[in-house]
Every structure is written in C-alpha cells, then in structure tokens.
Design a protein around this nucleic acid. Structure first.
Lengths: 240, 240
DNA sequence: CGCAAACTTTGATCTAGATCAAATCGCGAT
DNA sequence: ATCGCGATTTGATCTAGATCAAAGTTTGCG
C-alpha cells in the first residue's frame, strides 16, 4: 500500500471517542514526507458501517477524514434520482474538502470502514506548518483527476462488457491478495453500485458478469468474491 | 474572466519566438496572489492553429503552457481509435504536467489559440520561491476535478438530449458575450469533437441540435454560432 | 426452523442511439 | 462563377443495452 503521500499512521494513544461512546478511537497522525504530527485529541478514529454517509451532498462539512481501512464511494445524485458514482477511494486517501471544491458530491462508506476524522482548521494549520503537505494534497488531487479522466473514457466510449472488465481491473489493482498467477478479491460494491459506477443497469451488469464467468475470465463465489485466473486476459479486454 | 488563481499577465517585452521564426512572442509573467514574476526569455508567447497538438499522448513533455486566448481540449484515444475528450480548458488555465500525472492524455488547440510556453524547471523554481503558487495549482486541479466529475454524471446518466444541452450550457458559461436576456457564443468544437466529448456519434449530436433548434431553445447560425434566447430553459433541461 | 425482504440472475421485449447511406451546405481553390 | 471536398444534416434500418417481469439466492429475524 502506497503511503508516500498524504498517508496516515496511528500513533496509538487510546482516547475516548466522542461520537460513539461505546467504542474507542485512537489518536492519529498525518504523515507527510516522513514527518509525523501528533494531532492530539482533535482527531479520532471511528468505525463506520457500509452505507454510512461521511459527507452529505450539498453540505458544507467542516471535517476531513482519512481512510484507514475500507472503501469509500463518491456519489452524485440528480433531483430525479439518477445516480452516478464518480470515484472510489481506498486507504490511505483523504476524503473531504481539499478534494471537493463544490459541494455537489456525497461520500459514503461502500464497505465497513475505519476513518480518522479531524476538523478542517486543523488541516489548515498543518498545511501552514508543513508546506510540503500542500504538495502532497496536490498530488492526491492529481491522482484523482487522472482516475476521473480514465473513467470518463470508460463511461463515454467503452461497451458494457469492457466497462465491467474495467471495474474488475480497477478493484483488482487496489485490493490485491494475489498469488503468482491469479488474483482474488472481494467486490466492495453491490451490483446496483457497480451499475451506478459504470452508467449501466443492474441487469446489464449481471449479464456481463455471467458472460465473463462463462467465458472463463473470472470465477465468482458468493456474488462478491471474484477470482481472476489470468489478469492479462482481463487487461486485453479493456484496451483493444 | 477569473484571474484570481494561476493567472497570467503579459509583461509586454517583445522577444523573438524560437519555434516560429516569422512571428514574435512576448515575455509573460505568472501572477500569483498579486505577485508578478518576470520570466525573462524563458517564457514566450506563441500562436497555435486549431488542431495543433500542445502535448502528445504518451509523451513526457518538459514544458508547461498557459492559455492566453482560445480553447484547448484534453483528449484520450484508445488503440482502436475510439476517442474521448476529457476536458476543455479556457484562458487563463494552465496546461501541462502539474495537472496530468500519467501521460495518457493529449492536449490540442480546439480553436486558434495563443499560449504562453515555459520550461518545466521554471515552474518548479517559481513554486519554491512563491509557496502560494502551490496552493493556486491545487485550486486549479480541484476545479478540474469537479468539472471531470460533473462530466462523469453527464456521460453515465444523462440522455443524448441532456448531454447536448449540458455541453451548450458549459460553453455558454465559459464564453459569454451575453445580453440581459439572451446569450450568444461560437462553439469551439466541431460536431465530431462534440460527439467525442459527449460519448455520442456525430449523427446523434446533429439530430439533437436540430431538435433543440426546432423546439426554440437555441438558434443556430453557420453551424458554429449559437444563440440561447432563454438560458433558464436550457438549464431546466439538464437538472430534471 | 421458516418466513420475509433484499439482492441477484435470467428471460422476453422495447427503444434510444448506433450504423449505414444519401443528400446538402459552405468554403477555398481554380 | 463553378468545382470539389470536408462538414453537416437527414433518412432508413439495426442493435446494444434498457425496461418489464419472473424466478432463484442469501441473509436476518422472530
């Protein structure tokens, strides 16, 4: 896991969690260019269940979060209910205002997750104290920009089959217990969420998944667990 | 025109242009938080014709450009020729590496344009001298990230009619000689380019344009010049 | 354990937009 | 002017993927 930019390390001092009395958080620190900052009691670690909204669309959140574990989806929904997932974020990405200028986006835990929450002004302070942090944030923004543009190509110009293959490849690339020959992973998204990410319907996603299964490109266990015997095969479906 | 972040001002010292002997450039300066830096002979202003490639896909350009006039399109093309425009940039945006991590993107002048070109290391130097510049770059990256995500919603979930309306609205918002009631502008893109931006075919774009024309939402003169009598009408087509 | 609700798959049919095929338009060059 | 070519529009037809409609499956809960 790449922790080079904008990563987070636990400092390990247990502290009472304000939001959920029953659980306990730990103080976190932000790692920037090898420098570790103690955020004191201002930051706390929090478990969130799948489906939990971290940032609401249209809101002005004054908190940032840092993903420690799990997957967060960035969502846009139209007034009539049509919905598009515009990004997936994995540990150790940041979630929050430094990557969302306009507040037309919601962030929601796709899987059970742990996030490290801290107030907006704290990040501002840290940036002024550690200028390289600004650079790190810029780097993550560029990473997300690249990903968004790559996905625009997928949404605009790829077929349903290629779209599904692209998604599997994306997930495989980020959540990768892989052996020498094959790669296995759990999908962090339901079929409905996959459809909303790919600009397709649930039924089309399902049909393409069974097509991939029948043609031997993937194996599916329990709907969620995917095994890709030959990753090159999958990649060939995407580019050509 | 918003020149608040990462804007460019001409300093006005004429200098011979290296790339096209016949023309002449002017030295440019980068404006950052009110501070003006003279870039000396390292930067020069250059006219580029529509269609001219500013950054080639797959290349490692060591130059940045700043758009002074005109429109630049960011393009991705697949090995089999399918193509997707993933962004449009207007003056005074930057074009180049600080907004493109991976080199899987080409930048091309959509209209005749003037750009201000300067070498990579110059920007690096300026960033280290003026730390707020890093912040400005981050701001532009976020603006582009927002735009990309908004467009993902358009590509994934809007109908052909809504897509075309979205494009017209986008252009109108950025190139706006508007009177109190109506807005008029020239499309910086051909029908084929519009299709590549919207993930449609030329024919569908054309049909939707005539639909909009027949329903009175727009008037079209000479293929390129568009008049929108009632912008609210157009906006209503996009959101609902 | 058994039932209900939510998810997923599968099948039948429909349609928005693609593809194929001509016109038409506009513009620069002869 | 008029010729020729690329860009655009328009028309006819086709199809990938949507929509409508049932079945399975899985999971949680009384």
């Amino acid at each position: 896991m790449d922790v080079a930019h904008s990563g987070v390390l636990e400092v390990g001092i247990p502290v009472a969690c304000r939001s959920c009395q029953a659980r306990h958080g730990v103080v976190c620190g932000v790692l920037s260019s090898g420098q570790l900052k103690d955020l004191g009691r201002h930051s706390l670690r929090r478990k969130v269940d799948a489906g939990c909204e971290i940032i609401a669309q249209g809101s002005e959140s004054s908190y940032y979060s840092n993903i420690m574990r799990g997957v967060v989806k960035l969502c846009k929904v139209m007034p009539d209910g049509r919905q598009q997932i515009v990004g997936l974020q994995f540990a150790p990405d940041f979630v929050g205002r430094p990557f969302v200028r306009e507040s037309t986006l919601s962030a929601e835990a796709a899987t059970d997750a742990e996030i490290c929450v801290f107030p907006r002004n704290l990040l501002d302070r840290m940036i002024s104290e550690t200028p390289e942090l600004q650079r790190s944030l810029h780097d993550q923004a560029l990473k997300e920009l690249d990903a968004a543009r790559e996905w625009m190509l997928t949404l605009g110009r790829r077929t349903a089959e290629e779209k599904v293959a692209s998604l599997l490849h994306l997930i495989a690339t980020h959540a990768e217990p892989q052996t020498a020959t094959s790669t296995a992973f759990d999908l962090p998204l339901s079929r409905a969420e996959i459809a909303d990410f790919l600009g397709l319907t649930i039924e089309t996603v399902s049909r393409q998944m069974t097509r991939l299964r029948k043609s031997g490109v993937i194996r599916i266990e329990n709907f969620r667990h995917i095994i890709v015997p030959d990753m090159d095969e999958l990649e060939r479906m995407i580019s050509a």
